[in-house]
Nucleic acid binder design. Structure first.
Length: 296
DNA sequence: CACTTGACCTGTCCGC
DNA sequence: TGCGGACAGGTCAAGT
């Protein structure tokens, strides 16, 4: 699920809803979802680390790098989170609980079967980490160490940064034989793009997803990078894409998919040329494209 | 070495 | 309606 626009939308919500609040308790329903850096996942040690470094700390900032969320605490530690496919970070405010939500709303039902972590703040606000498939995680670690995490240090430029274009070109050029779609999904080449925005950017730049990188011109690569930025900017404006699970920090769905040109639109007419959108498999992922506009 | 495939989990949808 | 199988927005490790 969450790609850069969804994670950025969540980050903005957390910035508004939990920054400045003090953590009173953290309940771990699923041990696998909460890790402490440099500690084996022993229940006792995890509980001790929570008591020492999480309880009593105040959230100082909500940051994002690619698809990674970073909540900095005011004590030199950070909570680093990845939502993977089905993760959610949802906040229920103190002013709302006790019947403030319609009984059919997501917020009213939490915690539910998919709730893996629950943070309770001193003012009664709650932050839930829900994750149906348990692929996501939240990790407690020193703030100084975050940028040195190997997978974070290796990330490529983000399309929203126009200055990253030369670096993107250098990095993608090292993979001449891979398909251009696989390259867009490789976070070490360009960071933050997932399956939805890869397909949308390829459509916008009129590039066939299965083309080898070596066959894509330098001009097309620039168009791709800029197209990725455009689709992701639009998506952020629309609150991201909700296919099934995704919601923002307030439990709201995103509406980008209503504006998507190819993703999940197989069988429909291409908005540019009228040809029928196809779905195939590229780089092991469901891939949507227009066989006419994206012939090459 | 570089790229592709399976695994991690749970849930849903589709065809028989 | 029940059941098996494919598939799902991400990323690793293992395999070719």
């Amino acid at each position: 699920m969450p790609e850069l626009p969804e994670v950025e939308t969540v980050r903005r919500g957390l910035d508004r809803l939990v920054v400045g609040r003090t953590i009173a308790a953290l309940e771990v329903f699923e041990p696998k979802s909460f890790q402490v850096a440099d500690l084996p996942p022993t229940r006792e040690e995890t509980a001790a680390a929570i008591q020492r470094h999480v309880v009593g700390a105040t959230i100082a900032a909500a940051r994002r790098r690619a698809k990674v969320l970073i909540l900095d605490l005011d004590n030199g530690f950070s909570l680093v989170g990845h939502l993977k496919m089905t993760g959610q970070m949802v906040v229920r405010g103190a002013e709302d609980w006790g019947g403030g939500h319609p009984t059919d709303s997501l917020l009213a039902r939490l915690p539910d079967r998919s709730t893996r972590l629950e943070f309770r703040f001193a003012d009664g606000t709650q932050l839930f980490f829900n994750d149906q498939r348990k692929f996501g995680w939240v990790r407690l670690m020193a703030t100084d160490a975050v940028e040195h995490l190997p997978f974070i240090a290796a990330l490529g430029p983000e399309p929203l940064d126009p200055a990253g274009l030369p670096e993107f070109r250098r990095r993608i050029a090292r993979h001449p034989k891979t398909t251009v779609k696989a390259a867009l999904l490789n976070q070490e080449i360009v960071a933050g793009i997932g399956n939805i925005y890869a397909d949308e950017a390829l459509w916008a730049a009129r590039v066939n997803p299965a083309r080898p990188v070596a066959d894509v011109s330098a001009r097309k690569l620039r168009e791709l990078y800029e197209a990725a930025a455009s689709v992701m900017r639009l998506s952020i404006d629309l609150g991201g894409s909700t296919d099934r699970n995704y919601v923002d920090a307030e439990g709201n769905k995103g509406s980008y998919l209503g504006f998507a040109h190819v993703f999940r639109r197989e069988g429909q007419a291409c908005s540019r040329c009228g040809a029928t959108i196809r779905k195939t498999r590229v780089a092991g992922r469901g891939t949507h494209y227009c066989p006419t506009c994206q012939r090459r």
